[in-house]
Write a protein that binds this DNA or RNA. Structure first.
Lengths: 194, 194
DNA sequence: GCAGTGATGTGACTTGGTAACGTCACCGTA
DNA sequence: TACGGTGACGTTACCAAGTCACATCACTGC
């Protein structure tokens, strides 16, 4: 046999994520059990929960990393930068972590999340956490409230919008470009609020 | 017998809410079981779930009504109103539905929610749903995207902020005043974003 | 009285999630 | 070669959230 076969196949975590997305897409989130995900991966329920704190989180793992990237990029922006300039730099940093090979994955991910309320709820929470990370970093560099919270919210909205467009298979633009454009679009829209 | 009386006492729904808040405040959300809430109310677990779709929702029930109030008030605003003026009218309408007797309740509610991640997640979802209701109504009256979404978000943020201050026992201001002020504060902060 | 209606109770079930404990490959070291 | 530690996984048992089918009881109108 090949290499005497390691006891366990590698990349258990990633395999669990892929199995989960496949099953959620095929049967829906509710009809899919954690046991089913684990079995398709050749693992058990217990192992699933060793990698993810709950069933939903299998689709959102790694978001803490995104929060750190955004927060650190805001902190690293030059002291002369305006809040929105610091946020723009953070979006650049986050966008740079995505590769084109992840686009298909992103497409399916967004479709699965959009189809289920529990997942949309988790997405709303993650949205708030990303914004909180940037808002905290902005306050650290002297941006007062409520401007810090607002700038952070605009940034996350811009990124969400850009990510959705980027994941569209027909699109050609880079995520970085889309994010910059979305943020600028939000900035100009502020004038129309009255 | 007492147990026979509890079965048909009126206001089961409200009693469940009060028992839930009491227990969450005493023991924490995680340590409190639905069975415990129901028993304290003189009811059973099944009845609890007939009134609320899940354990968290006992603290957020009635939010659909708030969405309707906001959406209808935005729709009813004069056609000449700017997006933020329509939003301001909606905040007035929503603020008018709260009475001073609810302040203690609000204080405890916010404390319980702030202490638990599951509840904060649900709160983030409700926040998004309120914003979506106003954003939809704004689009109906001609406000384009992304301005509609932004104006709605500003409105919900203003209300959340005002609600938190209103619930503070030391405060004296009315919820309506606080909401108007918070929205105005957000509006002026927009200029500081760069 | 009596039938219907609606709110509640009962009991059984599925599934998410936790915890204690056991198993086995790999790695370093003697 | 032997051996002990470590880390990833499995097994089992358990609790609590949430669902469902069916029974019960109070009230209402006739």
């Amino acid at each position: 046999m090949l290499s005497a076969m390691a006891r366990w196949e590698p990349n258990a975590r990633e395999r669990l994520v892929r199995a989960a997305i496949d099953l959620f897409a095929e049967q829906g989130y509710d009809a899919t059990t954690v046991n089913g995900i684990a079995e398709r991966t050749g693992l058990t329920k217990t192992t699933f929960f060793r990698h993810f704190p709950d069933k939903r989180e299998v689709l959102f793992a790694g978001q803490e990393l995104h929060s750190r990237i955004l927060g650190e990029a805001v902190a690293a922006a030059p002291g002369t930068a305006t809040p929105l300039q610091a946020v723009a730099a953070a979006l650049d940093a986050l966008a740079a972590t995505f590769t084109d090979g992840q686009r298909d994955f992103a497409t399916r991910l967004l479709a699965v999340i959009a189809a289920n309320d529990e997942l949309r709820e988790r997405a709303a929470f993650k949205h708030a956490q990303l914004a909180a990370a940037m808002a905290g970093a902005l306050r650290e560099r002297g941006t007062p409230d409520p401007a810090a919270g607002l700038a952070a919210e605009l940034g996350v909205r811009a990124f969400d919008d850009a990510f959705a467009r980027w994941s569209d298979p027909s699109g050609e633009r880079t995520l970085t470009d889309l994010a910059r454009e979305a943020l600028e679009e939000l900035r100009t829209a502020l004038a129309a609020l009255g």
